[in-house]
Design a protein around this nucleic acid. Sequence first.
DNA 1: TTGAAAGCGCTAACAC
DNA 2: GTGTTAGCGCTTTCAA
Lengths: 324, 324
Amino acid sequence: MKRATIYSIAEVCGVSASTVSRAFSRPEVVNPEVRELIHAKARELGYRPNKAARELATGRTGMIGLLVHDVANPFFPPLVRAIQRAADEMEAAVMLVDADESSAREVGLIKQLKGQVDGLVIASPRSSSALQEAAEGLPAVVVNRRMRGFPSVVCDNTAALTEAGRHLEDLGHRKVALMCGPSASWAARQRAATVRAWAQGTRVTLVELGSFAATFEGGREAARALVGSGATAAFAFDDLMACGVLSGLAEAGVQVPGGCSVVGCDDVLLARAVTPQLTTVTAPVDRLGRAAVDALRRCIAGEQVRDVRMDGSLTLRGSTGRPA
Amino acid sequence: MKRATIYSIAEVCGVSASTVSRAFSRPEVVNPEVRELIHAKARELGYRPNKAARELATGRTGMIGLLVHDVANPFFPPLVRAIQRAADEMEAAVMLVDADESSAREVGLIKQLKGQVDGLVIASPRSSSALQEAAEGLPAVVVNRRMRGFPSVVCDNTAALTEAGRHLEDLGHRKVALMCGPSASWAARQRAATVRAWAQGTRVTLVELGSFAATFEGGREAARALVGSGATAAFAFDDLMACGVLSGLAEAGVQVPGGCSVVGCDDVLLARAVTPQLTTVTAPVDRLGRAAVDALRRCIAGEQVRDVRMDGSLTLRGSTGRPA
DNA sequence: TTGAAAGCGCTAACAC
DNA sequence: GTGTTAGCGCTTTCAA
């Protein structure tokens, strides 16, 4: 009682194995009647093509790798889900690998992945030339950062962050803190640059704090720096940090938004789960994931792929308000 | 300039391909000198065994599937990470598939996975006979629930929840709410049963609310029910729900823990990110993941595998205190 | 439109 | 210890 193969089907249908193969891979070239017969029998026998055999013959695995910096960071799971869905639609399976926050592991993982996947989506905020080198020869796209040598799919937060700045200014804030993320992070640099650019030519004084780790703890640390800064509002690098800031401020007895307003970035689940809920920049995660897979598909097909950028949007919630 | 194969190495070394194959798969049976030569040349040529070929020959893929109900639920990412690490150590790759919270999708996914993986870790809170049927013939273990027909690795929260109950009683609570999770969830039933059992024979009156969705929103809904209940403390099904409860209580103007204490379960990242931080039952996620992979390995090897249970532990934080 | 046949890279008897 | 050989299941020329 073995699994059905093209041979067993061929036998049942009285045709050759190659015809069965073609009935699936290039249906249009086989006689419609024969094709239908083959499909019918295949279904009946529960035929499922053997991926390994196909891979061995074609060199294609039907899998795409997804390298994430740290699955436990709340930004990633929705992205993983989105990528998975998109891959699903193109009949590809996703092999997830978590770099465990270690850039060193990343290059090892990529090398392992090579030959196991047809292409790679890199969702890692840090760059490294070692990483580029490791991915050499493997079609790959980078998501949520730009990186030399790879097509990228990024969320552009410029407009939304600028809007957030104006929002703070409108509320009457005149001294705003910028709590920077890790300088190795592309997104952190981008966001910081955006906020600085916005502050130019406004009546707002920008106080730069940090950098801090892009973690909850990093945010608590940032809060301690924030308390003495005199700022009445603050941009956190991301929502995770922003939540840490909320926690730190609460501990210091500072009301939010009365004593200090806080703006996050990404709009992860967490952002809605804290009190007050975070004003933040919402990233179009589903679209990012879909675009990444799509770009990768084209990479694999050998097409030239252009960078994709899509805008984040400002989402106002309870963590911003008038200074007391 | 093609990739090295056992043949190219064989040629360079002046031995047969089988010897090269053996030098890797069963090194002890080949002449040490020859073996070293082969390994040296292999390294030099950058040889990486072709997984597809091996799979085709052996029938083993070297991959394990990981079916999660919803990666975006904060409970899962750390588990995914742990499983991944453990799999890594046994040279297996993890294929993650997200059921997108749909039990129906789960069975489809399992069928797809079949033949692509050597075994399956099922991390899904809902049972279904369809699921069992789908996994028929595929070595599989279930994590964080028990399920007929599969070995399971679960966190037993009985002791810790009971301890939490005593803690509340000691603090002076006499009316405690139990906010039940989805009745389809094994964990929800377990936890509810534990809390009920604890309440028996104490001076505490238990008020059962729900069931509610195991989501943040479900928690907010639960909070509305909680407010009118007269309870001064509440067990939430899990941390996510507990966070929703905090949010709902804040909205209703109820202080935590002064107006109402809240106990969560799982100790996800979120639990520490909210204010006040949640008193909760900490699950040994890393050990759960490791045990699951280990059990699966043995399943695949054909060994008889027994259920594994490990205890959760009570973690006291700010969300519990004396009733005002 | 179909079939025969070679081959993808590796493993696993089996014989030496 | 080592080589020979026969597959694993599929794709893909090439002929018919």
